[in-house]
Design a protein around this nucleic acid. Structure first.
Lengths: 340, 340
DNA sequence: ACATGTTTCACAAACGTTTCCAACATAGGG
DNA sequence: CCCTATGTTGGAAACGTTTGTGAAACATGT
C-alpha cells in the first residue's frame, strides 16, 4: 500500500556487525571511540559500514545519549536584513562545533514565538532566543528546561548578550546638533518591542542632554512602508532631521521624501538605525547607528556552547557590546529658515 | 561536577503514569488516541501531565515511530532576498501540517550544500532542496534515502518544481524592442549556476527571435557589487539597455550608473530578474521579470507533504510555473543617437 | 445466571544506539 | 610456571516511547 517510499530499510548497526562478523557494541566502538578497538577489526567494520551505506540513527543515539547535537535559533523575521548577518554568524559558529542548527522565524508574532520555542525546546540541546516580544514568564518557563541564551534583550533569567546603544545614540544626536539641527523627529517602531522602548529612551535622554527638541511620532511598522507614512508626519511636524526606528524605516522615509521632491540631505537629514548591509548601498548612502550584530551573534553562540560544554554557566553571565554612529551621506547642515 | 545544568530530570511518561495511578501505556494512549481511554481516566492523566510539566521525548518517539516530524529546507543563501518569500511560504505550510522546519543555508558553496543535506537527511522525514550547484549524483545519493523535492531546478531523480522563465524573458525582450532598443547587454551570474545558464539561453533565443543584438558580459557575482562592475562593462559595450542576472545585480548597476551621472531610464534602461520585495521600493522602481517564487514554495511544500502522506508520489511529478514581466520605471525609449 | 460482546487497561516487546561489566586472550614480571 | 596487568571483545541493560496481545471488568441479551 505504501509501496515505493520505503523500498529498503535503512542499514542498522546490527547489519554492519553481522557483515563484519563482530558484535554491535564493537561496531559502535569502532565508529565512536577508535582507540578501544583493534585496528584491523576496526578497518573491517568501517568497510562493512561503507558497503552498506550505514548512517547512524540519530533518534536512537539521542535517546541513549540524552542529547541531540542540534541547536536552535529563533529570530523574529528572516526577511529583516538586520538579522541575516546574525543568522550567518551563528550558523557558522554552530556548524564549526559540529552541531546542526534549527532556525525558526516567528513573523514578529508573540504567539508564534512562544510556540516555536516550545516546539524546538525538546529537540535541541540549547537555543539562542531573539524574541523581543516574549513575556518574561514564558521565557522563564522555557529556560528552566533548556539551556538558553538571550540575544538582543536583557534578562535575569538566562545569560544574555545585548547591545549598548548609548554611545551610538549620543554620537548621532551630537552629530545632528553639530550640523545645526535643533528640532528632530523620532519615528518609533512597534509599541511592545523592547528595542523600540530602549531606542526611544536613549534618544530622549541624549536630545535633552544636548538641547535638541525631539518630536516622537508613531508607532510605525518597522518596515519600508512604515517609513513611508512616517515621512509625511515628520514633514508635517516641521523637523529638519529624522531619526528612524531602523534602516528599513529610513529607507521608506527617503523614498517618500524623494516622491515629494524633498531633497535628502539638502532639505531633510535622515538617520537610520542598525546599519543593515543595504544601508551603505542606498543612494545616497545612509548615515546610521551601527549595531554590532555580528559580534552579538558570535558572543551568543560561544556562550551557548560553553553553557553546553558543562563548564557551568559562562563566565560573563551577560555581555554588552557598544553601538556607534556611521556617518555617510544623508546628513548635512540644517537648511536655513526661509525667512533669512 | 556538571552541576546546575541538569538540576531536575525531565518528567517521563512513567512519572505521569505513577502519579495518575495508571500504566505508561495508558498515558500514551490518553495523550495520542483519546478515543481509546475512558474519559475520566484521561482527565486524570492530563492533569498529572500538566502538573509534572511533562513534555514527550521526541527522540524516543521518533525511534519507535520511525519518523521525526521534522522537515528540512536547504537554500543557497538566506541573505538573498529572493529566497525570503520562499522560506516564509514553505515555513507557513510546513508548520500548518504540524511539522517543524530545519533550515540550512549553504553560503552558495557546493561542499556545504552536500554536507548540509547529508547531515539533515537523517533527522528529517523529507526535505526541500534548493541547491543549484549540487552535482546530480550527489543529489541522487540523497534522494534514495530521503524523500526529496527539488525546487528551482529540473531533475529526473526526484519530483521537482521549477519556474518557466520563457514567457517572462520573451515579454522583457519584446518590451525593450518596442521601446526601440536594438543593442542590449546581459550581465551573467555565476558560471556554474543552473539558473544562470537557463536565463542566458532564453535571453539569447528571445533576442535572436526579435532581432535584438545581445552582448553577454560577465560572469559577475550575483550580488550588489557584481552589478557595480557590470555597469561599467555594459557602458563600455555601448548598449542602451541592460538585462541583469538578478535584481541585486540590477540594483548595483543603477547605483553605479547614478555615480557616473548616467540617468536611468533616460540614458540607460535597466531590467532586473526575480522581483524581490526591494525591487518595487527602489528609486526608480525596477522593471523586472517576476519569478513566482511563492507559488513554487507552496507547490514544493505540498508535493513533499503528499509524498510523505504515503499516497505514492505526487500526481504531477514535476511542475512548472510561469514567470512574467513586471514593468515599472527603469525602462524607457532608447536614447536617440547624439548625431540626430 | 450464563454466554457473549465490549470497553478499558496492564504487560511486554520493540525501535537502534551506547556503555557498563564481565570474559577471554595475550604478554610481562616475578 | 603462575599471577597480574593490559587489550580486545561480546552480552546485556538502559534510554522513553508506542503498540500488539491478552486479561479483567462490565454490560447486554437470553
Amino acid at each position: 500500500m505504501e509501496g515505493a517510499r520505503e523500498v529498503t530499510r535503512a542499514a542498522t548497526i546490527h547489519a554492519v556487525a553481522a557483515l563484519a562478523g563482530v558484535s554491535p557494541s564493537t561496531v559502535s566502538r569502532a565508529l565512536n571511540s577508535p582507540g578501544l578497538v583493534n585496528a584491523v577489526t576496526r578497518q573491517r567494520v568501517l568497510e562493512s559500514a561503507e558497503q552498506l551505506g550505514y548512517q547512524p540513527n540519530r533518534a536512537a543515539r539521542s535517546l541513549v545519549l540524552g542529547r541531540t547535537s542540534n541547536l536552535g535559533l529563533i529570530v523574529p523575521d528572516i526577511a529583516n536584513p538586520f538579522f541575516t548577518p546574525f543568522i550567518k554568524a551563528v550558523q557558522a559558529q554552530v556548524r564549526q562545533a559540529s552541531y546542526s542548527l534549527f532556525l525558526a522565524d516567528t513573523d514578529e508574532d508573540v504567539e508564534v514565538e512562544v510556540e516555536a520555542a516550545r516546539a524546538m525546546a525538546k529537540q535541541v540541546d540549547g537555543m539562542i532566543l531573539c524574541a523581543p516580544r516574549m513575556p518574561g514568564n514564558r521565557l522563564r518557563s522555557i529556560a528552566v528546561h533548556t539551556p538558553v541564551v538571550i540575544a538582543n534583550r536583557q534578562s535575569r533569567t538566562a545569560p544574555a548578550v545585548t547591545m549598548d546603544i548609548g554611545p551610538g545614540v549620543r554620537q548621532a544626536v551630537a552629530h545632528v546638533h553639530a550640523l545645526g539641527h535643533r528640532r528632530c523627529a523620532f519615528l518609533s517602531g512597534p509599541r511592545g518591542s523592547w528595542s523600540n522602548q530602549q531606542r526611544l529612551r536613549f534618544f530622549t535622554a541624549a536630545c535633552q542632554a544636548q538641547g535638541v527638541e525631539l518630536i516622537v511620532l508613531g508607532p510605525f511598522e518597522p518596515v519600508f512602508g512604515g517609513g513611508y507614512r512616517g515621512a509625511d508626519e515628520a514633514v508635517a511636524a516641521g523637523v529638519t532631521a529624522i531619526f528612524a526606528y531602523n534602516d528599513l524605516v529610513a529607507l521608506g522615509v527617503m523614498s517618500r521624501l524623494n516622491d515629494r521632491g524633498i531633497r535628502v540631505p539638502g532639505e531633510m537629514s535622515v538617520l537610520g538605525f542598525d546599519d543593515i548591509p543595504m544601508a551603505s548601498m542606498m543612494n545616497p548612502p545612509l548615515t546610521t547607528v551601527m549595531m554590532p550584530i555580528t559580534a552579538v551573534a558570535r558572543a551568543s553562540a560561544s556562550m551557548l556552547l560553553t553553557l553546553l560544554g558543562g563548564n557551568g554557566p559562562p563566565r560573563p553571565a551577560a555581555q554588552e557590546l557598544a553601538a556607534r554612529l556611521v556617518i555617510r551621506s544623508t546628513t548635512e547642515s540644517a537648511a536655513r529658515p526661509t525667512g533669512l
